[in-house]
């Protein structure tokens, strides 16, 4: 039981990270109807920028951990957002009204560019960082000596996720930008006729998605203590899986999907085999899509004849 509880905690933390990335996929898919294949790599870039900012801040003698974390978060979000914006501007906008496969291939190309760019710019080796946040709580000490632990970093990941999710739900539901986004999602032509700046709204969607991916990248760095240039690919596929699982286009769905994927992966690794944890995640994606083609919280698609 204790072991299970521990895996549950670990799974939820991993799931929060997937969920943050998945939101970026879901928002972009909702508004422009394409899989932003480069999004996983945006997450990776976010992790790298967090790492570099962290190194600089530490070496200039900053020691207050909360200040460091806040600065790292802001810098990482800001620069990564600009990556998101630039990619949309260069690789997707010229293809917006084109043949549908073109943006997808362009996105795959962009993903290769980003992966290789960080490989060249920062080297191929894994970049470890010493633990920044240590400590935690022992929730329950079992008779067999197994203790359920909740570390401070896990608490930070989950709280940050909840706060950001609340913030973005509010953004989409209540603000002008959110309204414009929902309008563009329904009908871009009509939205632009009603005075919505479609280009700007789509750009902002990419910016927000990238900012959230940057947060996920930073959390990943803090939680696992390492980044590498290739981490975007698998994380990206899993986050997309999460978005699809939750029902693409739905923000709560993305989060729910992320948590489920995180849990499935962790529990599978804990009880069955570590090797096949990704196979389990992908198989579940396939199974869910067979029985629930629109995901858990997606709107059912009625076939118009």
């Amino acid at each position: 039981m204790d072991y299970f509880a521990q895996q549950l905690i670990n799974g939820l933390v991993l799931g929060s990270i997937y969920g943050l990335i998945a939101i970026g996929y879901t928002m972009v898919y909702g508004i422009v109807g394409m899989i932003n294949f480069a999004h996983g790599d945006i997450f990776m870039i976010g992790g790298f920028i967090a790492l570099i900012t962290f190194l600089i801040l530490v070496s200039i003698g900053l020691t207050a951990v909360p200040v460091i974390l806040l600065l790292v978060l802001l810098v990482s979000m800001a620069i990564t957002s600009l990556y998101g914006w630039t990619i949309e501007r260069i690789a997707y906008r010229p293809l917006r009204h084109s043949f549908r496969l073109a943006p997808m291939l362009s996105a795959i190309g962009m993903s290769f560019v980003l992966t290789n760019f960080s490989q060249v710019a920062q080297g191929a080796r894994v970049k470890p960082v010493p633990p920044i946040i240590t400590g935690g709580y022992t929730l329950h000490e079992g008779a067999d000596g197994f203790a359920v632990r909740l570390s401070n970093i896990q608490i930070i990941v989950v709280i940050t996720t909840i706060v950001l999710l609340a913030l973005f739900t509010w953004l989409v539901a209540r603000t002008r930008l959110g309204r414009d986004m929902r309008a563009c999602e329904q009908d871009q032509t009509m939205a632009s006729l009603l005075g919505v700046d479609v280009d700007r709204t789509i750009s902002m969607t990419f910016v927000i998605g990238a900012a959230l991916a940057a947060v996920a990248g930073m959390m990943y760095l803090l939680y696992y203590g390492l980044v590498d240039f290739f981490m975007g690919f698998v994380a990206g596929i899993k986050a997309f899986t999460a978005a699809v699982l939750g029902g693409i286009g739905s923000l709560p769905g993305a989060m729910l999907g992320g948590l489920l994927i995180g849990l499935i992966e962790t529990l599978w690794a804990a009880y069955f085999s570590t090797e096949y944890k990704d196979v389990a995640a992908f198989s579940i994606l396939i199974v869910v899509l067979i029985f629930l083609p629109t995901g858990l919280l997606g709107r059912p698609e009625v076939e118009k004849v």
């Binding site: 690789a91 293809l95 362009s106 962009m110 993903s111 290769f112």
Partner: peptide
Amino acid sequence: RMLVFGGAMVLLMI
């Protein structure tokens, strides 16, 4: 290589 390949893919699609 992948940088060039990826960039070429983007440009060719555009």
